Computed example of a mutant assay.
Amino acid sequence: MALGLLRRRRSRGASGAVSSISVPLPPGAGACGFEVLDPMGQPMGGAEVTVTALDSHRIATRGTTDPHGYFIATLPPGSYSVMIVAEGLSPARENLDIAAGVARPTAQVVLQPARQLELPTAGTWLFDPPHTAIRFIAKHVGMAHVHGRFTRFQGNLRIAPDMADSQVAVRIDASSVTTGNNTRDNHLRSADFLDVERYPYIDFTSSRFAHLGGSKWTLHGTLTMHGTSRSVSLDTTYLGSINGGYEQELRCAALAKAELHREDFTLNWRSMLARGIAVVGPTVQLELDVQAMYRTHDTPTPPQ
């Protein structure tokens, strides 16, 4: 089964419209192509394209548009769904049928601006622990990934009328780290790593929000772990707010991610490696999947 992006040959008429595209077709395959444009009608390079078979719901191929906004693929005969996604723009979906030996005419897709999610109401929002997760993924030295989480934490958001001036504070109980392996968890809590007896908390305090477009933000702040503070940036996706849940509370949600380098926090583990103890590799992917509850503008911040 031959799948993938192919080089194209195209010609344009005086109007600039694509008049033809020719691609080599593997035996028994067909082809499809898309020209993706932004809301101003300009080529949209780097848009993500995913082609899924409608019968099996499996991804047949995926990739990104080239600098001219084009994506071309060869596919086995069948019916497919095509999803086209770009930052800050509404996704577009197309259904198409592929026939053997047929290269479909290139379809032009104009992406529209994404609907702007209403920002959270100004005031204090408190993390809801049962509906919030703080997770991490680390490479086990020489082996597979280690997935872990912290089970005890508290956090709050103070949303300002100007979102850029809002603040986030998170405190994590370092001893609540768990990876599903007691021996490894004890090592992570020990003086070789988090040293939870000397440094019981991991703290994050934001300094500013920077809007990237659509629902994407960068949250800048300071992370303090193992007695060391470092500036970090969290890639954050705002997921919106809803009036629901227990007692119809007003809630908002966001997903924030960052890559941490353990040596930035003096976690070099040389003593562990000297004793033949291998825990995790040099980088850790941190993820905060947050749901917060509105507690009015004058609700006190939880004690730190």
Rank of each mutant, 00 (worst) to 15 (best):
273 L>W: 14
218 T>D: 15
261 H>T: 13
61 T>M: 05
196 V>P: 06
100 A>T: 02
70 Y>W: 09
44 M>I: 00
247 E>Q: 14
25 L>W: 12
254 A>N: 02
298 D>A: 14
72 I>Q: 13
89 L>H: 05
145 H>P: 01
81 S>I: 01
57 H>F: 03
172 I>G: 03
233 S>M: 08
280 V>K: 02
126 L>Q: 05
151 T>C: 09
256 A>F: 13
101 G>Q: 07
105 P>A: 09
140 H>A: 15
52 T>D: 01
285 Q>R: 14
173 D>S: 08
146 V>E: 02
114 A>C: 08
230 R>S: 09
126 L>Y: 11
32 C>G: 06
260 L>K: 05
8 R>G: 07
190 S>C: 06
158 R>Q: 14
231 S>H: 11
204 F>Q: 05
304 Q>P: 00
40 M>V: 00
73 A>L: 06
81 S>T: 05
210 A>Y: 06
83 M>D: 11
234 L>E: 06
291 Q>V: 11
201 Y>E: 13
232 V>Q: 07
26 P>D: 03
112 Q>T: 12
220 H>M: 00
216 K>P: 00
144 A>F: 05
129 P>Y: 04
42 Q>E: 14
69 G>S: 01
184 R>W: 03
262 R>T: 08
94 E>L: 12
87 E>Q: 13
83 M>I: 03
203 D>W: 06
66 D>Y: 07
102 V>C: 00
254 A>S: 12
30 G>D: 03
186 N>H: 14
200 P>R: 05
139 K>G: 10
8 R>N: 12
92 A>F: 10
1 M>P: 04
179 T>P: 03
186 N>I: 03
27 P>D: 04
176 S>E: 05
166 S>C: 09
109 V>T: 07
39 P>C: 04
162 D>E: 13
292 A>D: 11
300 P>Q: 10
225 M>D: 08
183 T>I: 12
13 G>Q: 02
34 F>R: 02
140 H>E: 14
271 S>L: 13
169 A>V: 01
228 T>V: 15
1 M>I: 01
62 R>D: 02
138 A>F: 09
86 A>C: 01
99 A>H: 14
147 H>Y: 15
124 T>C: 04
122 A>R: 13
15 S>M: 05
152 R>W: 02
93 R>N: 00
66 D>S: 08
181 N>C: 01
154 Q>W: 08
162 D>F: 07
171 R>L: 10
5 L>E: 09
100 A>Q: 10
252 C>N: 08
